[in-house]
Design a protein around this nucleic acid. Structure first.
Length: 311
RNA sequence: GGAGGUGUGGCCGAGCGGUCAAUGGCAGCAGACUGUAAAUCUGCCGGGCAACGCCCUACGGAGGUUCGAAUCCUCCCGCCUCCA
């Protein structure tokens, strides 16, 4: 009846096996007659063509489990949390109608939170023209001037953001111009049972997993994928800040050798994982599991089953 | 053999007599993050301390000049380029 099915969130830093676990759980539940579908919450896997570099699960790896959140737009299309929220809002009711479980798996903490805690995107509109103007203002007048204008235009909003961060200032100005000065809306919450699982591996081991995956991606043709993408799209697109592409291009251009490219790829992933941990540390209620230790699948299935009966 | 260049903190790279424990970048550590979030931003980042100040160790090595050197001189070591 509800538009929201039980939601199992699988969080954690990159290269810890979130996707694989999500699929395993979905298959296990499917075996018990409960349709479970995976929703990827990954800000780079939404782009078509960024496959190897984003570790997007292949059709084979998906093993027949329905996936959402993948290949939503071309790399030159803007795609923000709000777009993700919209997409998921379409997917969720369908899963609910089938009496299924939604498994939201991914490393983009902000997106995970937007779904599982309910980001009120309607209260925080966006407008391309306003946005363009505000960004131009920021570029010419500078961050200090823009922050100053924000402080007078929308003191409440200004007080709540990092006024040294150009992106935050731009967004706050955009909101201020569109809806005026008002406090940020509280989270909407999730309309159904939710459980958070987090996957993490001890650092030294994780570093190795990351290095291995980086090499595997290069072996699997990441460079060729990057080369092809560059012929069709502007390399400065936000999508290509995904790890692995700049490294591949540098390799193609003869600036670095293959080993260096792999090393850099891994190093960036390690740093990224660190930022992800910082984010998830602040996320309350995560049950952390170590994929290198015990049988996390059993536990994950337990939690999933619990969610279904809590429905 | 001759001419020249170069050696700086984990890496890259400024500094070229004092205001230098040494700009900046990267990496690292900690953190923020309600529409670019694999993004963006902030703080810390030689060691020690009774610590808004002091001490120690530091700019290839050893000496020297100077009140004072990473910065000048000498020798040595390493690397690079050019001429033979």
């Amino acid at each position: 009846m509800t538009g929201s099915p039980p939601l199992l969130v699988v969080a954690g830093p990159t290269a810890t096996g979130k996707t694989a676990l999500a699929i395993d759980v979905a298959l296990a539940l499917g075996g018990d007659g409960i349709p479970a579908e995976v929703i990827s919450a990954d800000s780079r896997q939404v782009y078509r063509g960024l496959d190897i570099g984003t570790a997007k699960p292949t059709l084979e790896e998906r093993r027949g489990v329905a996936h959402h959140g993948l290949d939503l737009v071309d790399p030159d299309a803007p795609f923000s949390v709000a777009d993700f929220v919209d997409h998921v809002a379409l997917v969720l009711p369908a899963i609910a109608a089938r009496g299924g479980l939604a498994i939201l798996a991914g490393g983009t903490g902000f997106w995970l939170r937007a779904i599982a805690r309910g980001l009120d995107t309607a209260a925080l509109p966006s407008d391309a023209d306003v946005r363009r103007r505000v960004e131009a203002e920021l570029a010419t007048a500078g961050i200090a001037a823009a922050a100053g204008r924000l402080a007078t235009l929308a003191p409440t909003l200004a007080a709540g953001i990092d006024t040294r961060n150009p992106r935050r200032v731009a967004r706050a100005l955009e909101i201020a111009e569109l809806v005026g000065d008002r406090p940020l809306p509280p989270p909407l919450g999730y309309d159904g049972p939710v459980a958070w699982l987090g996957l993490d591996v001890p650092r030294p081991l994780h570093d190795r997993w990351i290095a291995d995956r980086a090499r595997a991606q290069f072996d699997a043709g990441l460079v060729e994928e990057a080369r092809a993408l560059r012929t069709r799209f502007d390399p400065s697109l936000p999508a290509f800040s995904a790890i692995g592409y700049a490294e591949s291009w540098a390799l193609l251009d003869g600036e670095i050798d293959r080993e260096t490219a792999i090393e850099r790829d891994a190093a960036r992933n390690v740093a990224f994982a660190k930022r992800q941990r910082t984010w998830f540390r602040r996320e309350p209620g995560i049950e952390w599991l170590d994929p290198s230790a015990g049988d996390l699948l059993r536990r994950a299935i337990e939690v999933a089953a619990g969610l279904m009966s809590a429905r």
